[in-house]
Amino acid sequence: MPSYNITHLQQLESEAIFVLREAAAQFDSTALLFSGGKDSIVMAWLARKAFHPARMPFPLLHVDTGHNFPETLTYRDQFVADLGLTLKVASVQESIDTGRVREETGHNASRNKLQTVTLLDAIEEGKYDCCLGGGRRDEEKARAKERFFSHRNDFGQWDPKNQRPELWNLFNGRKHVGEHFRVFPLSNWTEMDVWMYLKEEKISLPNLYFSHDRKVFSRGGTWLADSEFITRLPSETLETKRIRFRTIGDATCTGAVESDAATLDDVIQEVATARQTERGTRSDDKRSDSAMEDRKKEGYF
């Protein structure tokens, strides 16, 4: 009797491809939310595989806070060119300029929250009824309750207490006009799975993920990179440290960790022994106990 066992990564890949194909089949107009972070890179990679040899049937949508690390944008443009994808950019700066949102002030100001308005505007403008997100349930406690097919009402809001039950592999993407879905093909992946998959598939990443020397300063227990988008307090002095980023988001809220991990193998080793969660360096999650839940209810990623 031959053995038909597959590894956990093959299982996760197969599940994600199944979910991506379901999204393509069930919705009229889908966009893949792409930040240039590793999760959205893996998702785009899987989407390419799911429809091969055809092109993936949806564009990438980048909600651009304007506060990116320049490395992220370089990588994004190269990735899009290499894989022959379509990229759409929704700009938070534009939402600010047109008065849709008001910029936060103060030294902890971040455009993180503002992204929600820009995202929802982009969804409305693009008439998307489905946005694919790279969110994983292991990331954060509110995300642990998220469905693969997550319903959003016509205000883009998530109602965590009233989610549709999701059984077997049967996804219910039916909706009324104006509502949309967020679909999370990587729901069952962990940070470690993502890293192992990146290695197995030999996917290149923004060099921000690997150790390098950078001018940083300490705030709220994490290292923030020196950047034109952050106003430092007089007490916040710059130091040069050997660091890398475990997650990549907006430069104002993504903290770095001190690290010598220069290769994927080093990173995997480091992740295996990490004592802090991946989002432990994200000040956007630390604003309160339920920061993620509150933002998701408003329509966040």
Partner: peptide, 17 residues
């Protein structure tokens, strides 16, 4: 995971770990 769950000390929805 959810605010109401922590406050009431009960589990309302399926959580995946």
């Amino acid at each position: 995971g959810l605010k109401a769950e922590r406050e009431q000390g009960i589990t309302i929805d399926v959580a995946y770990r």
